[in-house]
C-alpha cells in the first residue's frame, strides 16, 4: 500500500470512529434533558422549606426525574408516598439526627470531580465542610447530633484499577475536630492488639453517649463488627461477618447486612438483626440482597434502599424477622427520620 493510501485509510477510519464517538456522547448528553423532565406518574415535588427538626418527617435524597432531582426532600413519615417538598440542596448521601445533617456531595472541578461532606444545621445551612477522599458511600449522625461520620471508596492506582479501599471519617460537629481515618485507631481483635496494613473501616453508627460507636472492620478477607471508643481511640471486635451496622434507637440491637454463603458474588448480603446483649442473630424476611446501611424508623421498623427504576426505592420491614418488606417510596435513597 502506498503512503498516500495508508493516510487515506487512516483519515477515513478517523472520520468513521469520530462519528461513532460523537454520536455516543450526544446520546448520553441528551439524557440530561430527559432527566430534567418530570416523569409521568412520578411523585409530585415542589420547592419549599425543609428543616431537620420538624417531628414526624422523613428527609431523603429525591431521585425522581425533574428539576428537583438529587435534592434533599421531605415527606410525612406517615405518608412517605405523598407529595415531596424539595430544599434545593443536592446530595449523593445524607443522614440527620437532632437537628444536625451530613450531606455528601460531589464538586465539579476542572479536571475531575471531587467530593466533600457538608455539616448542615436544622435549616440545611452549611456550618462546615470537609474533603472526602473518594466516592461517598455511607453517612451517619449521632443521636445527639454532636458527631457525624462518613465512608468513601478510595480507588486503586494499579493498571486496571481494581484495588479499592474504604476510608471512614468521624468529626466532632461542636469543635470541628476531624478523625480523617479510623485506621489511626488501635485495633483489639479477640482480646489482642492487632496490626494490619489491610484494615478497612466502613459504616459507622453511633450510640447516644457521645463516645461509643460501632462500625465494620474488614481485614484478611473477613469482616467484623467493632465497638469503637472515641476517647481511647480504640476499636474492639465483637462479632464476625457484619457489614454496615445500624444501631436501634434504644441501643440494644444492630441491624446489618450479612454475607450469606451461596449467593452471587455481587449480591451476597441478607439483612440481619444482632441482639447486643445475647449476641443472637435474627434473619429478617427480605429475600433480596440488600447493599445499604439500614435506618431505624423506630424501635420496631427498618427502612432501607433497593435498586429501582430511577436509581433506588425505599422499603420498610419489621426488625424482628416477621412480616414482609413493603415498598414505601420510589425514586428515593438515604432516608433519615427526624424528630
Amino acid at each position: 500500500m502506498t503512503v498516500r493510501n495508508r493516510v487515506l485509510v487512516l483519515l477515513a477510519a478517523v472520520l468513521a470512529l469520530a462519528v461513532v464517538a460523537v454520536a455516543s456522547i450526544l446520546h448520553a448528553s441528551a439524557r440530561a434533558d430527559r432527566r430534567n423532565e418530570t416523569q409521568p406518574g412520578g411523585p409530585k415535588v415542589t420547592s419549599g422549606p425543609v428543616t431537620l427538626t420538624t417531628p414526624g418527617r422523613m428527609v431523603f435524597r429525591n431521585m425522581a426525574w425533574g428539576p428537583h432531582r438529587d435534592e434533599l426532600t421531605t415527606v410525612p413519615a406517615s405518608a412517605p408516598a405523598g407529595p415531596r417538598v424539595a430544599s434545593g440542596v443536592k446530595c449523593l448521601r445524607f443522614y440527620a439526627a437532632a437537628g444536625t445533617g451530613v450531606c455528601l456531595q460531589s464538586v465539579h472541578g476542572p479536571v475531575a470531580d471531587t467530593y466533600r461532606a457538608l455539616i448542615l444545621d436544622t435549616h440545611l445551612k452549611e456550618t462546615a465542610h470537609y474533603d472526602v477522599p473518594g466516592i461517598p458511600s455511607r453517612a451517619r449522625v449521632s443521636p445527639t447530633g454532636h458527631f457525624a461520620a462518613w465512608t468513601a471508596f478510595v480507588g486503586g492506582d494499579s493498571y486496571a484499577g481494581t484495588n479499592f479501599s474504604t476510608r471512614a471519617a468521624i468529626v466532632d460537629v461542636r469543635t470541628g475536630k476531624l478523625i480523617p481515618s479510623l485506621e489511626a485507631f488501635r485495633i483489639v481483635k479477640n482480646g489482642h492488639r492487632y496490626h494490619s496494613a489491610d484494615a478497612n473501616f466502613w459504616g459507622v453508627t453511633f450510640t447516644s453517649d457521645d463516645n461509643t460507636f460501632y462500625a465494620t472492620l474488614a481485614t484478611k478477607g473477613r469482616t467484623y463488627l467493632v465497638q469503637g471508643d472515641l476517647r481511647t481511640r480504640t476499636v474492639t471486635t465483637l462479632h464476625e461477618n457484619v457489614e454496615c451496622p445500624s444501631l436501634s434507637p434504644d441501643g440494644t440491637r444492630i441491624a446489618y447486612k450479612k454475607r450469606v454463603k451461596g449467593l452471587p458474588k455481587d449480591a451476597p448480603w441478607h439483612l440481619y438483626v444482632l441482639n447486643l446483649r445475647t449476641m443472637r442473630e435474627t434473619p429478617l424476611s427480605e429475600p433480596r440482597s440488600v447493599d445499604d446501611q439500614a435506618a431505624w424508623q423506630n424501635n420496631h421498623t427498618l427502612v432501607y434502599a433497593l435498586p429501582g427504576d430511577y436509581g433506588a426505592d425505599l422499603y420498610e420491614l419489621p426488625a424482628d424477622g416477621t412480616g414482609k418488606p413493603r415498598r414505601i417510596s420510589t425514586a428515593a435513597v438515604s432516608p433519615a427520620f427526624v424528630e
Binding site: I135, F153, A160, G161, P307
Partner: peptide, 17 residues
C-alpha cells in the same frame, strides 16, 4: 471504573482486587 461500579452499577468494589 470505580465511579462506574459504585454509582453506575451500585456494586461494592471491595474485594474486587
Amino acid at each position: 471504573l470505580p465511579l462506574y461500579l459504585v454509582t453506575g452499577l451500585g456494586l461494592s468494589p471491595l474485594g474486587f482486587g
